[in-house]
Amino acid sequence: TSSHKLRLYERDDYRGLMSELTDDCACVPELFRLPEIYSLHVLEGCWVLYEMPNYRGRQYLLRPGDYRRYHDWGGADAKVGSLRRVTDL
């Protein structure tokens, strides 16, 4: 099985509160109590970021690497509604 891990930060450049995720999350704002995510670091696996909860809205593919600001993943703003692991490519 492949492993997945990413870290979410409330501010750009990996500042502020950090939360780690290793499984799908249908509602990021509810789980982490963060209305917006300004940076993230994908440590393992690929993920799909959705701008709205319950895997809706615009989708962004996140490969392992650094995303210091939301425009690094192509986002128009810092809204992160849900995240899902990519298990098949």
Rank of each mutant, 00 (worst) to 15 (best):
V48A: 13
K5L: 10
D72I: 03
G16F: 08
A76I: 14
R84N: 00
F32E: 14
R68F: 15
G57P: 08
E44H: 05
L6F: 02
L8E: 01
A76P: 13
E44P: 04
L49C: 04
R84M: 12
Y38R: 11
K79Y: 07
I37V: 10
M18Q: 05
H71P: 11
D24V: 03
R33A: 12
Y14K: 07
T87G: 13
H41C: 14
D66V: 06
L83V: 09
G16P: 02
W47I: 14
L43F: 10
S82D: 02
V48L: 12
L83M: 07
I37Q: 15
E36M: 14
E30V: 08
L83W: 03
L34Y: 10
R68E: 02
N54L: 10
W73M: 07
D72M: 05
Y70R: 09
M18S: 14
A76C: 10
H4G: 02
R68G: 03
M52A: 12
L21N: 02
V48M: 15
H71N: 07
H4Q: 01
A26S: 12
D72T: 07
I37M: 12
K5Y: 13
L40P: 03
A76E: 14
E30P: 03
E36G: 12
F32G: 11
D12I: 13
M18R: 06
L61F: 13
M18H: 11
L83D: 03
T87E: 15
Y50C: 00
V28I: 09
C27N: 11
C25Q: 00
Y67L: 05
P64T: 03
D88L: 05
E30N: 10
S2M: 14
P53S: 08
R63I: 00
L89W: 13
L89P: 15
S3A: 09
V42D: 02
V42K: 00
D88W: 04
L83C: 13
G16T: 04
H4M: 01
P29S: 12
R11S: 09
L21Q: 00
H41P: 02
R85G: 02
L89D: 15
G57H: 07
L83K: 00
R7I: 10
M52N: 11
